[in-house]
């Protein structure tokens, strides 16, 4: 069997005495789109943030393409360069132009020539429909535009995996569609994605697999149709009855 892109085994994480993740096991295959749903405080964002060590797990193992992040010899910056992340609040760098936001890491981390990085950045901006915003300041963008730039910025590193942490939760409703459209396109191109979201429509349409998390555990997982239409667990049913 082909090696999984992401392997999580026995992942535990507490903040103080509050156990946020209780023994999470997860595998994500190459080109798979895994959507994580669940009530707020269920640990889904924390789990996602453990996958590139923005949170340090207390216990367990995380492997990206077979390389353990817990291994002392693993250079975490190299792993992170291969794993793109999109945040709820975009986190664009406000002191530089849209173009510089996108080229910063390719130039400084990947040591690409500036012209090459800029050409690639323009190509990505075209892809997300914002080529006219290259020289704009991030402050001048709408939420939907900012999030599309953030996606382009992550893609500029040519990551093997993309993590999305509630990418549409901070957006006005009319802007959610434009961001989801870019994500759908990315999924169709075969990107391996883990998406934490409250967009059940997206989960159903784009997800290869849906995980339902509650109180730090994966309660149920399955194909979206299965999970949405005939959930097995009571807790899943209860949650879905509230959000659908």
């Amino acid at each position: 069997m082909e090696q999984a892109m992401i392997q999580v085994a026995g992942l535990c994480k507490s903040f103080g005495t509050n156990a946020v993740l209780r023994h999470i096991d997860l595998e994500v295959r190459r080109q798979e789109v895994v959507v994580v749903i669940g009530p707020s405080g269920s640990g889904k964002s924390t789990m996602l943030r453990c996958l590139n060590l923005l949170e340090q797990p207390d216990q367990g193992d995380i492997r990206i393409e077979g390389v353990s992040l817990m291994d002392k010899g693993t250079r975490i910056t190299e792993v992170r360069a291969e794993v793109g992340m999109v945040f709820q609040r975009f986190n664009l760098f406000p002191h530089m132009s849209v173009l510089d936001n996108i080229t910063l890491s390719p130039v400084r981390v990947r040591k690409r020539p500036k012209e090459e990085a800029e050409a690639k950045a323009m190509e990505l901006l075209r892809k997300v429909g914002l080529e006219d915003k290259a020289n704009a300041s991030p402050d001048s963008l709408s939420g939907g535009q900012a999030q599309r730039v953030a996606i382009a910025r992550a893609l500029a590193m040519e990551p093997k995996i993309m993590l999305f942490d509630e990418p549409t939760s901070a957006l006005d409703p009319e802007m959610v569609g434009e961001v989801l459209a870019v994500m759908k396109e990315l999924a169709a191109e075969g990107m391996t994605m883990v998406v934490v979201t409250h967009e059940m429509g997206f989960a159903r349409e784009v997800g290869d697999r849906v995980l339902f998390m509650e109180q730090g555990s994966i309660v149920e997982e399955g194909h979206p149709r299965e999970l949405f239409e005939s959930p097995k667990q009571e807790r899943t049913k209860l949650f879905l009855s509230k959000v659908l």
Binding site: L54, T77, R80, A81, F87, N91, F93, L104, R108, A154
Partner: peptide
């Protein structure tokens, strides 16, 4: 905002690069 540092880290920057840029 800590999100700035997280974004920099998520793009593969080291602590020093995140600080500097």
């Amino acid at each position: 905002d800590p999100g700035q540092k997280e974004a920099a880290y998520s793009l593969g920057m080291s602590h020093g690069q995140a600080m500097r840029f």
